[in-house]
Write a protein that binds this DNA or RNA. Structure first.
Length: 270
DNA sequence: ACCGGAGCCTGTTAGC
DNA sequence: TGCTAACAGGCTCCGG
């Protein structure tokens, strides 16, 4: 489900619902849902702790708790987080739930079971290898160039590497390359100066548009309240195979790169 | 060191 | 309609 804009949307929705809440208990029906530590230890360590703030790093949702603890969630493909009244009907795909004060519950459901929960004191252990955040001011065309120059593989594949750049996934990689008019199979370290500037601008533009439209509800993703985002109505190439390019009219093609569907316009991406 | 492919999972959809 | 195969927005591990 989620890439940077979707995860950012989730964080923004959960923040006012979680900050100030206290965790009273944790329930788990599928132990592997919790990556670290094991469930009994996680349960013991978070009981009584309070959410002090929420942030996002790459595609991780980071909950800062009292006592120096950090509760992280990765939604992977189909994860969904929501704060609901404890009396709200349950769903068979909720694998981990946090009972909060004031009768509410934070529920993590995930039909495909790829998503994970982490509890760490040291954030760097988990997040240290991630590349730069593409929407921060410090992310410049020169930074993009330095991140790409050691990668000769296809630019599409490189954009999905979270240690190169954080937060981009399959939708926004395809969209950014189309916006920048760059063919997805071009070697990452062979982009021209002008292309690097265009790609930098395109990455920021598509991610900002995705956030403004509260994410792309194409297959699974919905916001914490269950409603859809709007980015699916603004994509230029993603899952538009066989349809006309809005810019040049050529038919959008699909190829598989690094095992992932890749959509591009053969007319204006070179 | 790099690259492709399998694996993790279940649900939905496309095709016969 | 019903079965099967392909596919899914992520990421890690493994072997060549």
């Amino acid at each position: 489900m989620p890439e940077l804009p979707e995860v950012e949307t989730v964080v923004r929705a959960l923040r006012p619902q979680l900050v100030g809440r206290t965790i009273q208990d944790v329930h788990n029906t599928w132990p592997r849902h919790i990556a670290t530590p094991d469930f009994p230890e996680l349960r013991a360590r978070v009981q009584g702790l309070q959410f002090t703030s929420l942030s996002r790093r790459a595609k991780y949702i980071v909950c800062h708790l009292t006592e120096g603890e950090h509760l992280l969630f990765h939604l992977k493909m189909t994860g969904h987080l929501a704060v609901v009244p404890a009396t709200y009907p349950t769903d068979k795909h909720v694998h981990t739930a946090f009972s909060l004060d004031k009768g509410s519950e934070l529920r993590f459901k995930d039909p495909r079971k790829f998503g994970r929960v982490y509890l760490v004191r040291n954030l760097h252990e988990l997040l240290g290898k991630l590349g730069p955040e593409p929407l921060e001011d410090s992310f410049t065309p020169a930074v993009l160039q330095s991140r790409l120059q050691t990668h000769k593989q296809a630019i599409k594949k490189t954009l999905l590497d979270q240690t190169v750049l954080a937060g981009i996934g399959n939708i926004y990689a395809d969209e950014a390359l189309h916006e920048a008019r760059i063919h997805p199979t071009r070697p990452a370290n062979a982009l021209t100066e002008a292309e690097l500037v265009a790609l930098h601008r395109a990455i920021q533009a598509v991610l900002r548009l995705g956030i403004a439209r509260e994410g792309a509800s194409i297959t699974n993703y919905v916001k914490p309240d269950g409603s859809k985002g709007d980015m699916q109505n603004a994509v230029a190439v993603f899952r538009r195979t066989g349809m006309g390019c809005y810019r040049c009219g050529r038919v959008i093609e699909r190829v598989v790169l690094g095992g992932r569907s890749t959509h591009f316009c053969p007319g204006c991406q070179t």
